[in-house]
Protein backbone atom coordinates (compact mmCIF):
# COMPACT_ATOMS: atom_id res chain seq x y z
CA UNK A 1 0.00 0.00 0.00
CA UNK A 2 1.37 3.41 -0.91
CA UNK A 3 0.70 6.20 1.50
CA UNK A 4 0.64 9.44 -0.50
CA UNK A 5 2.93 12.13 0.76
CA UNK A 6 0.02 14.58 0.79
CA UNK A 7 -1.45 12.93 3.82
CA UNK A 8 1.80 13.36 5.66
CA UNK A 9 2.27 16.94 4.46
CA UNK A 10 -1.26 17.92 5.42
CA UNK A 11 -0.92 16.45 8.90
CA UNK A 12 2.38 18.28 9.37
CA UNK A 13 0.95 21.54 8.01
CA UNK A 14 -2.05 21.33 10.32
CA UNK A 15 0.25 21.07 13.27
CA UNK A 16 2.54 23.84 12.16
CA UNK A 17 -0.39 26.20 11.76
CA UNK A 18 -1.48 25.49 15.29
CA UNK A 19 0.30 27.58 17.86
CA UNK A 20 0.30 25.65 21.11
CA UNK A 21 1.69 28.54 23.13
CA UNK A 22 -1.40 30.68 22.70
CA UNK A 23 -1.44 34.10 24.31
CA UNK A 24 -3.88 35.01 27.01
CA UNK A 25 -6.77 37.26 26.10
CA UNK A 26 -8.23 40.26 27.90
CA UNK A 27 -10.93 39.37 30.29
CA UNK A 28 -10.93 36.37 32.54
CA UNK A 29 -12.46 36.82 35.97
CA UNK A 30 -13.10 40.04 37.84
CA UNK A 31 -10.62 40.04 40.69
CA UNK A 32 -11.30 43.48 42.15
CA UNK A 33 -13.57 46.47 41.67
CA UNK A 34 -13.65 49.76 43.52
CA UNK A 35 -14.13 53.46 43.20
CA UNK A 36 -11.83 56.42 43.36
CA UNK A 37 -13.07 59.96 43.56
CA UNK A 38 -13.54 60.15 39.82
CA UNK A 39 -13.64 56.59 38.52
CA UNK A 40 -15.25 53.24 38.97
CA UNK A 41 -12.51 50.68 38.41
CA UNK A 42 -12.75 46.98 37.60
CA UNK A 43 -9.76 44.68 37.30
CA UNK A 44 -9.92 41.39 35.41
CA UNK A 45 -7.30 38.67 35.75
CA UNK A 46 -6.53 35.81 33.45
CA UNK A 47 -5.95 32.84 33.29
CA UNK A 48 -8.61 31.36 35.53
CA UNK A 49 -7.44 30.20 38.00
CA UNK A 50 -4.36 32.38 38.23
CA UNK A 51 -1.18 30.37 38.21
CA UNK A 52 2.51 31.01 38.61
CA UNK A 53 3.85 32.17 35.25
CA UNK A 54 2.42 34.62 32.80
CA UNK A 55 -0.75 36.47 33.80
CA UNK A 56 -2.82 39.25 32.26
CA UNK A 57 -4.33 42.04 34.33
CA UNK A 58 -6.92 44.18 32.55
CA UNK A 59 -8.42 47.39 33.87
CA UNK A 60 -11.82 48.78 32.95
CA UNK A 61 -12.33 52.41 33.89
CA UNK A 62 -15.76 54.05 34.06
CA UNK A 63 -16.92 57.46 35.02
CA UNK A 64 -18.00 57.36 38.67
CA UNK A 65 -21.42 58.93 38.15
CA UNK A 66 -22.37 58.33 34.54
CA UNK A 67 -20.90 54.81 34.36
CA UNK A 68 -19.61 55.65 30.91
CA UNK A 69 -16.31 54.27 29.81
CA UNK A 70 -13.22 56.43 30.27
CA UNK A 71 -10.20 55.81 28.10
CA UNK A 72 -6.58 56.86 28.24
CA UNK A 73 -6.20 56.84 32.01
CA UNK A 74 -2.63 56.31 33.15
CA UNK A 75 -2.65 53.16 35.27
CA UNK A 76 0.08 50.94 36.66
CA UNK A 77 -0.02 47.55 38.35
CA UNK A 78 2.64 46.81 40.97
CA UNK A 79 2.78 43.26 42.37
CA UNK A 80 4.02 42.76 45.92
CA UNK A 81 5.13 39.18 46.70
CA UNK A 82 3.86 37.28 49.74
CA UNK A 83 5.60 38.39 52.94
CA UNK A 84 7.13 41.48 51.41
CA UNK A 85 6.29 45.14 51.47
CA UNK A 86 7.97 46.26 48.31
CA UNK A 87 6.77 45.55 44.78
CA UNK A 88 8.68 42.97 42.79
CA UNK A 89 6.90 43.42 39.47
CA UNK A 90 5.53 46.52 37.86
CA UNK A 91 3.84 47.14 34.52
CA UNK A 92 1.83 49.92 32.98
CA UNK A 93 -1.65 48.98 31.81
CA UNK A 94 -2.02 50.21 28.26
CA UNK A 95 -4.73 50.11 25.67
CA UNK A 96 -2.38 48.70 23.05
CA UNK A 97 -1.87 45.58 25.18
CA UNK A 98 -5.62 44.91 25.16
CA UNK A 99 -7.64 43.37 22.37
CA UNK A 100 -10.78 45.19 23.52
CA UNK A 101 -10.19 48.96 23.44
CA UNK A 102 -12.38 49.32 26.51
CA UNK A 103 -9.61 47.72 28.54
CA UNK A 104 -6.11 48.67 29.49
CA UNK A 105 -4.02 45.58 29.99
CA UNK A 106 -0.64 44.57 31.36
CA UNK A 107 1.13 41.25 31.06
CA UNK A 108 3.35 40.05 33.93
CA UNK A 109 5.30 36.93 34.74
CA UNK A 110 4.65 35.90 38.32
CA UNK A 111 7.67 33.91 39.52
CA UNK A 112 6.07 32.04 42.40
CA UNK A 113 2.74 31.16 43.91
CA UNK A 114 1.10 32.54 47.04
CA UNK A 115 -1.05 35.46 48.11
CA UNK A 116 0.33 38.46 46.26
CA UNK A 117 -0.83 42.04 46.78
CA UNK A 118 -1.63 44.14 43.76
CA UNK A 119 -1.11 47.86 44.05
CA UNK A 120 -3.10 49.69 41.44
CA UNK A 121 -2.03 53.25 40.70
CA UNK A 122 -4.44 55.35 38.67
CA UNK A 123 -3.87 58.99 37.72
CA UNK A 124 -6.83 61.10 38.80
CA UNK A 125 -7.88 63.92 36.44
CA UNK A 126 -7.12 66.52 39.04
CA UNK A 127 -4.80 65.56 41.78
CA UNK A 128 -2.33 62.80 42.62
CA UNK A 129 -2.45 59.11 41.83
CA UNK A 130 -5.26 57.09 43.31
CA UNK A 131 -3.95 53.86 44.72
CA UNK A 132 -5.73 50.71 45.76
CA UNK A 133 -4.35 47.47 47.12
CA UNK A 134 -6.07 44.15 46.73
CA UNK A 135 -4.94 40.53 47.14
CA UNK A 136 -4.29 38.18 44.27
CA UNK A 137 -4.19 34.48 44.97
CA UNK A 138 -1.70 32.80 42.63
CA UNK A 139 -1.78 29.02 42.51
CA UNK A 140 1.38 26.97 41.91
CA UNK A 141 2.29 26.36 38.31
CA UNK A 142 0.51 23.52 36.66
CA UNK A 143 2.35 20.23 36.64
CA UNK A 144 4.26 20.24 33.34
CA UNK A 145 3.05 16.76 32.48
CA UNK A 146 -0.56 17.81 33.07
CA UNK A 147 0.05 20.95 31.04
CA UNK A 148 1.20 18.81 28.15
CA UNK A 149 -1.52 16.20 28.66
CA UNK A 150 -3.20 17.17 25.41
CA UNK A 151 -0.07 16.52 23.39
CA UNK A 152 0.79 13.34 25.25
CA UNK A 153 -2.70 11.93 24.85
CA UNK A 154 -3.00 12.95 21.22
CA UNK A 155 -2.18 9.49 19.78
CA UNK A 156 -5.31 8.14 21.47
CA UNK A 157 -7.41 9.78 18.75
CA UNK A 158 -5.81 8.24 15.65
CA UNK A 159 -5.28 4.93 17.42
CA UNK A 160 -8.92 4.72 18.51
CA UNK A 161 -10.04 5.72 15.05
CA UNK A 162 -7.88 3.04 13.47
CA UNK A 163 -9.00 0.36 15.91
CA UNK A 164 -12.71 1.12 15.37
CA UNK A 165 -12.16 1.29 11.63
CA UNK A 166 -10.46 -2.10 11.56
CA UNK A 167 -13.15 -3.61 13.74
CA UNK A 168 -15.91 -2.30 11.48
CA UNK A 169 -13.99 -3.50 8.44
CA UNK A 170 -13.41 -6.90 9.98
CA UNK A 171 -17.07 -7.22 10.96
CA UNK A 172 -18.17 -6.33 7.43
CA UNK A 173 -15.72 -8.82 5.94
CA UNK A 174 -16.95 -11.49 8.35
CA UNK A 175 -20.58 -10.78 7.47
CA UNK A 176 -20.03 -10.86 3.74
CA UNK A 177 -18.07 -14.12 4.10
CA UNK A 178 -20.90 -15.70 6.08
CA UNK A 179 -23.42 -14.34 3.62
CA UNK A 180 -21.65 -15.98 0.72
CA UNK A 181 -21.28 -19.32 2.45
Amino acid sequence: MRIPVWQIVVVAAVWFTFDPGGLLADGGRVCWSGVSSAYRLTVFAEPVPLRQGRIDLSLFVQDFEELTHVSGVKATFALIPPGSATPLLEAEATRSNATNPLFQAASLIVPFSGRWQVKLLVAEPEGPFYSAIFPLEVAPAQDPVWKMAFWIALPVVPISWFVIRQLVHSRDAHRSKNGRS
Binding site: W15, P20, G21, M148, W151, I152, L154, P155, P158, I159
Partner: peptide, 15 residues
Protein backbone atom coordinates in the same frame (compact mmCIF):
# COMPACT_ATOMS: atom_id res chain seq x y z
CA UNK B 1 6.40 25.38 21.39
CA UNK B 2 9.54 23.23 21.64
CA UNK B 3 8.17 20.77 24.19
CA UNK B 4 4.86 20.26 22.35
CA UNK B 5 6.89 19.85 19.16
CA UNK B 6 9.04 17.16 20.74
CA UNK B 7 6.01 15.34 22.14
CA UNK B 8 4.25 15.59 18.79
CA UNK B 9 7.24 13.96 17.12
CA UNK B 10 6.94 11.05 19.53
CA UNK B 11 3.15 10.93 19.03
CA UNK B 12 3.66 10.46 15.32
CA UNK B 13 6.43 7.95 16.02
CA UNK B 14 4.21 5.93 18.36
CA UNK B 15 1.36 5.83 15.84
Amino acid sequence: WILPWEILCLDVGLC
